[in-house]
Amino acid sequence: MSDTTTPTAANTGNVDEHAATASHESDAPSEDHAHPSDWAYVKIALALAVITALEVFTYFESVLDWGVALVPSLIFMMIVKFYLVATWFMHLRFDSKLFGRMFTTGLLLAVGVYVATLTVFEFFA
């Protein structure tokens, strides 16, 4: 990250091919992306803290009756938190798309098969 150069290089005629390969498949990482400042990270963390506070707030039903909106709003907040950590703290925003694809493949597959399984068990009925 510090000294970032794209795979240029030196004594090889292969480089062009190489670079072509890279961009062909994986949206070659732009190595010279600017990483966010520490302050940006703190802002994300603050957002996460606020959402967490909201989540916990739902627990105290006496304050506000969420009714049928409870579960969808909880899941929505969870997804937002998940997304913020993955994209900012895990740098998926800034990194090669290939990393994200590896991860989301596993994630979506997991959601798919397990939601299907729970459906077969009539969990959501």
């Binding site: 090889t12 091919e17 190489h18 072509a20 062909h24």
Partner: peptide
């Protein structure tokens, strides 16, 4: 498979 291919060996 993803990272060790020879130059020009696209997927």
């Amino acid at each position: 498979c993803l990272n060790m291919r020879a130059p020009g060996m696209t997927l």
